[in-house]
Every structure is written in C-alpha cells, then in structure tokens.
C-alpha cells in the first residue's frame, strides 16, 4: 500500500478521484492550493484508491495523509 502525503501546508482545492477508482502512475489525485498556486498531487504508482483522508476545503499540514493507494 502506498501512502500519499502533502508536501506542504495547503488548502485542498479539488479532489479529482474517488475511493475505489483505479489510477495509473502520474494521474492527478487531488489539487492543492498554496500561496496562489495550484499543486497537483500525483499517484506515484498504479493502483486503486482505497481511502481519501481529506475533503475539499480542508487545510493540510506538511506530511498529512491525503490518500492511500493499493
């Protein structure tokens, strides 16, 4: 299982995938927004999104869990 974590303090602007979705390596999972910049969070491996730990509008801290991919 791969854990996807936030690289920086940010607002969750948009969630692109849903739990249960199959994703390919390089797919955008979530778009964060920090300091007027959109930062896509990318799947590093192919798999299935088993859990989304955030919702749109949340503030995430650096290192916070965003999603789990199996």
């Amino acid at each position: 299982m791969a854990e996807v974590r936030a690289e920086m303090v940010a607002n969750v602007w948009k969630i692109v995938v849903s739990e249960g979705d199959a994703v390919e390596e390089g797919d955008t999972l979530v778009i964060l927004e920090s300091m007027k910049m959109e930062i896509p969070v990318i799947a590093e491996d192919a798999g299935t999104v088993t859990k989304l730990h955030i919702k749109e509008g949340d503030v995430v801290q650096e290192g916070d869990l965003i999603a789990a991919i199996e």
Binding site: E7, M8, V9, A10, S34, M35, M37, I39, E62
Partner: peptide, 13 residues
Amino acid sequence: YAEDPRRFLPGPG
C-alpha cells in the same frame, strides 16, 4: 519567496 529554491514550490511555515 517562501518556496523551495529548486522547484519553486510553496513552503509556508
């Protein structure tokens, strides 16, 4: 800027 000096991604704190 509050950003990393390699990729220039935001780094507030």
